[in-house]
């Protein structure tokens, strides 16, 4: 990786303690949910592809908390956290990963295809870059219908190499659509480092070339993410599309099948010093908004939510095979 790793996020957190605790709690909910998923994958309860977001939680947390319930979200196959924070119950997410009918996609999608119409969570897309054109369409519909909503489109740095990215940037900018393009740059497209697949590694420059507002944000700092996402939402609503590059890092392998041989352990260790949860906790403790005791309490509450989700998924049922062909078409 060619980009130097900045020092860990630090400094005062400019929020009232309740808000800070809520952000911390959300990051922990994603982290503990996914740690449990990894465990259950090992136990054979979850199958297929499983892509963990561990290390990147500040991005989904800061960004989703800047959105409103009326907003639409399009995400990727690494979307457990985004679904959870858009309001999909952890029970239904876990049931989906178990393949149960109580899952948010009736067990037909699995980890990569979480959907929820009620909260306007539109997946769960396992085609890299596949969500971007869709987000443009949501923006177009909102604009044509005069609806006050933004569409937030999450995608990784790898998607920037796809034609879909460039076509979508152009279309959104040309038609001035209310879309926030949230690029989660974890510096690897699966196992290929960004400097090995991009001629221009300044991703904001690409978006800016379409006449679009574009800025980078430290994706390991939930405060920076939250402020950046708020600014992006306002911009999208007021004057059209915006691109934000959240610079982040995944601590785990690309998927459960990835032996992670393409990066130095020292690089991972260095990024871990920037971990979004422990650095944020330390800042809150430093300003007296959090004690270790309170942290452990929150962690225990989150563990309770995760346990309940697993119990819900275990108790769930299988969709009857007779329903296999149901919903191929709308009636």
């Amino acid at each position: 990786m060619s980009t130097p790793i900045p020092p860990p996020p630090s400094g005062p957190v400019p929020y009232p303690p309740e808000k800070s605790i809520a952000l911390l709690t959300d990051m922990l909910r994603i982290r503990r949910l996914e740690e449990k998923c990894a465990e259950l994958y090992g136990a054979g309860k979850i199958r297929g592809f499983l892509h963990l977001y561990i290390g990147e939680e500040a991005v989904a947390t800061g960004a989703m908390r800047a959105l409103l319930p009326v907003d639409s979200v399009v995400a990727t196959y690494r979307e457990h956290g985004h679904a959870l924070l858009k309001g999909v119950a952890m029970t239904r997410i876990m049931a989906e990963m178990f393949g149960k009918k109580e899952g948010c996609s009736r067990g037909r999608g699995g980890s990569m295809h979480l959907f929820d119409a009620a909260t306007r969570f539109y997946g769960g897309n396992a085609i890299v870059g596949g969500g971007l054109p869709l987000a443009v369409g949501f923006g177009l519909a909102a604009k044509m219908r005069g609806e006050e909503r933004v569409t937030a489109c999450f995608f990784g740095d790898g998607a920037v190499a796809e034609g879909a990215f460039h076509e979508s940037m152009n279309l959104a900018a040309l038609w001035r659509l209310p879309v926030a393009f949230f690029c989660e740059n974890n510096f690897y497209a699966m196992g290929t480092a960004i400097a090995r697949y991009e001629a221009q590694t300044d991703l904001c420059a690409k978006a800016a070339s379409y006449g679009m507002e574009a800025f980078p944000v430290d994706g390991m700092d939930v405060v920076a993410v939250h402020e950046g996402a708020k600014r992006a939402r306002e911009h999208a609503m007021a004057s059209g599309p915006v691109f934000v590059e959240f610079r982040t890092y995944r601590f785990r392998a690309h998927s459960m099948f990835d032996p992670d041989l393409y990066r130095d352990k020292s690089e991972i260790e260095q990024w871990k010093t920037r971990g979004p949860i422990h650095t944020f906790s330390a800042r809150l403790k430093a300003q007296g908004d959090l004690t270790e005791e309170r942290f452990l309490e929150i962690d225990a509450e989150v563990a309770g939510e995760v346990d309940a989700a697993v119990a819900f998924a275990e108790a769930g049922s299988w969709e009857p095979v007779e329903d296999l062909a149901k919903d191929v078409y709308a009636p």
């Binding site: 971007l132 443009v136 219908r145 979508s168 040309l174």
Partner: peptide, 25 residues
């Protein structure tokens, strides 16, 4: 607005059509 010329971006404007359909159009 309703007879909308698009750039030569078939992938994006077909995808946008899907998104717009999901969005109520």
């Amino acid at each position: 607005e309703r007879v909308r010329d698009a750039p030569l971006s078939e992938l994006a404007f077909v995808g946008a059509g899907i998104g717009a359909a999901l969005g109520g159009m």
